[in-house]
Design a binder for these strands. Structure first.
Length: 629
RNA sequence: GAGCCGGUAGCUCAGUCGGCAGAGCAGCAGACUUUUAAUCUGUUGGUCGAGGGUUCGAUUCCCUCCCGGCUCACCA
């Protein structure tokens, strides 16, 4: 390929290209493709399929991509219909007498079930099985994720009725096509047609089809749509897949391709589809919980003129008309508390945050966080609220407060329990137990630093006592924080927005929740003393001057808001991506984010991107706004 | 940023101690009227990530680079 991995399409715009999946259809830079078609045709399979599209056009008055098909039922509708009547659990119903389909063909060997309605169903073909004069198609539609459970429920009903379980937990629904019902369509889609624009079968795995017919069961008991013409062809090809799907049995394994081409992953990997739906269920239940508890959902700015609300490095962008720098938000906290000042009292935001830091299994540059604030509540109330929320969400999306998560050292499955109450530990107690420090050593920075060094815990040079204690605690405690655990007793100098403890002035009224060894939540009683808040901001400025590039900036408007008086308030953040990881038994944040951040696909920077890079954060949409490299 | 592992057909993967590039699935052709990873027969398809070196000969050995995964570090 001469080292280049880009081509110039007919508009002259450069764009990276990944090939059919990885590299097959990459352009030859010495012979640049003049059209997408020319480039795709470098691959035999795609050339064939493009020719099939021409065949479709010839067949359907020039229309290869019709848009007039309207499904009346989903696959889940169908399975529910089959389970709704014990008679429909039977495997096979013989044709009622006196219903020949045409005088010229023998009667079919099966019949639709009684009361089966005329049905139109559509979806993507993921398997084709042609057997002589009949064909079976496996179809995926938007309800695919529900089908395994519906099939298990049907098995239960069959068992109760004295029938054998079928154990077919596929996410697909079956179309059955007998040639005699519509020979022309059958032959064109499944058989070679000499003399046609494309002589081979027109239908491929991956195509989207619409079928009409009547529901019935095959001899093996499979709920199916028996395709029959009904004011049109029995089966129509609605959208051709030019690119072939990955192999049906192994699917798409390459993690990079699964994340980059999530659209393929979602088609061929049931687990990817299930994760996407479960994430949606988590968000739905979270919203329901707060809506039911008197909160309102709000949206606050994602472009911040002043950095604040968390300790993190930001992305920078720029507003051209105002000629001003902006930060993509690292946390919505300060805006949400302004709303509490304004009297909204109970607010929550499910928000996207952006942090310009490394990528890992647990970190994506943009991530989703739930933050909620409740007036007249303390961190103790928030502990109750978080326990109630997580228990409710776990039950709603998994059916139980105990969820499987990972394996132990012996390879045995482990269980996370969200049953209340969760365990609680303090930072001081954790350091005593797990860092082998004495009570009188805890508050000596040099001793804590020395112990951290002995235990292999690297501390930043600018770390003060509080930061050193927290860092060392997290280092030694994380192995012990598998089950959901509230960590309490945070030092004041690591928590510039939290209220000081009334009884222990060096500490703040704050907790973090850990589960599966990772931080899930961070919450505190909010600092609502504007004078104290101003001084804490000043300390952050000092920290920044000492080299802490995550320290916050002075937010004078936030202080002004506090000057108007904020009711005593508790606030909490929960990492939604990580919560979804726990509830889907996955150990990588990339599995629960549909499109996780990836390096650019093209090997070399494209010219247009290179220009943006040089412009830096002065160009909207340039690397300063969207990249992190 | 460091260490380890990897890149072979559209997909999933073998393989070559340096000597004509392999399988299954997908595709194409044939048989098959209830299959469900259908089966059976035949068959197309490859710049073995890129570049350079050693060699009579490199997909294989060496060097450099690109891309990815995992672990570590930073981080929520």
């Amino acid at each position: 390929m001469g080292g280049a991995s880009r081509f110039w399409c007919s508009t002259g715009a450069p764009r990276p290209f990944l090939g059919v999946f990885r590299r097959q259809a990459e352009p030859n830079p010495r012979q640049p493709a003049r059209s997408l078609r020319a480039m795709l045709e470098r691959n035999d399979l795609m050339r064939q399929r493009l020719a099939k599209i021409d065949g479709l056009r010839a067949l359907h008055g020039g229309i290869a991509y019709p848009n007039d098909f309207r499904p009346t039922h989903s696959a889940a509708d169908a399975l529910r219909w089959f389970a709704a009547d014990p008679q429909r659990l039977n495997a096979f119903v013989a044709l009622p007498e006196g219903e020949p389909m045409s005088p010229d063909v023998p009667p079919p060997t099966a019949a639709p079930l009684p009361q089966a309605p005329w049905t139109a169903m559509a979806g993507r073909v993921v398997a084709i099985n042609v057997k002589g004069k009949v064909a079976f198609l496996r179809i995926l539609d938007r309800t695919a994720v529900e089908l395994p459970a519906l099939r298990r429920a049907e098995d239960d009903l069959r068992e109760a009725a004295g029938l054998a379980r079928r154990e077919q937990d596929t996410a697909t629904f079956q179309f059955y096509f007998s040639r005699e019902t519509d020979p022309d369509t059958f032959d064109r889609l499944f058989k070679p047609t000499p003399g046609a624009a494309w002589e081979g079968p027109l239908l491929d795995v991956g195509d989207t089809v619409g079928g009409v017919g009547l529901w019935f069961r095959t001899r093996t008991g499979e709920p199916s749509l028996w395709l029959r013409p009904h004011g049109g062809p029995a089966l129509r090809l609605l959208a051709k897949a030019v690119r072939p799907l990955p192999e049906k049995w192994h699917g798409l394994q390459d993690k990079e391709l699964r994340h980059r081409q999530r659209y393929v992953d979602l088609v061929v990997n049931d687990a990817a589809r299930a994760t996407a739906f479960r994430r949606a269920a988590v968000l739905r239940e979270v919203r329901r919980f707060f809506d039911d508890h008197g909160y309102i959902e709000v949206e606050t700015p994602m472009m911040h003129p002043v950095l604040g609300g968390a300790a993190a490095r930001p992305f920078r962008t720029h507003h051209n008309a105002l000629d001003m720098p902006l930060f993509l938000r690292i946390a919505p906290e300060l805006y949400l508390k302004r709303l509490v000042v304004g009297g909204l009292e109970r607010v929550y935001e499910i928000n996207r945050n952006f942090r310009n830091e490394g990528l890992s299994q647990r970190h994506n540059p943009e991530f989703t966080m739930l933050e909620f604030y409740r007036a007249y509540a303390t961190w103790h109330d928030l502990i109750d609220e978080v326990e109630a929320l997580l228990a409710k969400v776990a039950v709603a999306v998994t059916g139980a407060t105990s969820v499987p998560y990972g394996v132990d050292a012996e390879g045995q499955p482990r269980t996370l329990s969200f049953a209340r109450p969760f365990r609680r530990v303090t930072i001081r107690q954790g350091l005593l137990d797990w860092a082998a420090l004495d009570e009188d050593q805890l508050d000596d920075l040099a001793t804590v630093r020395r112990r951290a060094g002995e235990l292999g815990c690297a501390l930043p040079d600018h770390a003060g006592l509080g930061k050193a204690q927290v860092e060392l605690f997290e280092h030694v405690a994380q192995p012990h924080l598998f089950q959901p655990t509230f960590v309490m007793g945070y030092p004041a100098d690591t928590s510039p927005l939290a209220r000081r403890s009334d009884t222990e002035p060096g500490l703040v009224d704050r907790f973090e929740l850990f589960a599966a060894h990772i931080e899930i939540s961070n919450a505190f009683s909010e600092l609502n003393d504007p004078v104290d808040q101003y001084e804490r901001f000043l300390l952050q400025l000092d920290a920044k001057a000492r080299g802490d590039d995550e320290a916050m900036e002075m937010d004078l408007d936030y202080v002004r808001a506090l000057e108007y008086g904020m009711p005593p308030t508790g606030g909490c953040g929960i990492g939604i991506d990580r919560l979804v990881m726990l509830l889907t038994n996955t150990d990588s944040i990339r599995e629960v984010i549909l499109f996780p951040h990836m390096r650019p696909e093209a090997r070399a920077p494209e010219p247009a991107l290179a220009v943006a890079d040089e412009a830096g954060d002065r160009e909207p949409g340039g690397a300063g706004a969207v990249g992190n490299r």
